[in-house]
């Protein structure tokens, strides 16, 4: 099962990103684990400077803004 983490300090864009991933997974019927990381030190350990960032299975796949729908879908199968 894919593990997604959304990195962000709690701004509106982070919530939108969470919802985008959730909706895309639901639409495809794929079960995923989705977490929100708000702790600054943990975010910095991923080396992400501009939030929201997205981590897929431990690897940063996106940073600096809301990802496009097509991008989110490309992370799922």
């Amino acid at each position: 099962m894919k593990n997604f983490k959304v990195l962000g300090t709690g701004c509106a864009n982070c919530k939108t990103t969470m919802k985008l991933i959730e909706d895309a997974a639901a639409a495809k019927g794929e079960a995923i684990v989705l977490e929100k990381v708000e702790d600054l030190q943990t975010i910095m350990q991923f080396g992400v400077m501009s939030t929201p960032g997205v981590v897929l299975n431990g690897k940063v796949v996106h940073a600096g803004g809301i990802p496009s729908k097509a991008t989110v879908e490309s992370w799922l199968n």
Partner: peptide
């Protein structure tokens, strides 16, 4: 590109 919400991580 800069958003004040990522000022601290930046």
């Amino acid at each position: 590109p800069f958003c004040s919400c990522s000022a601290v991580p930046l």
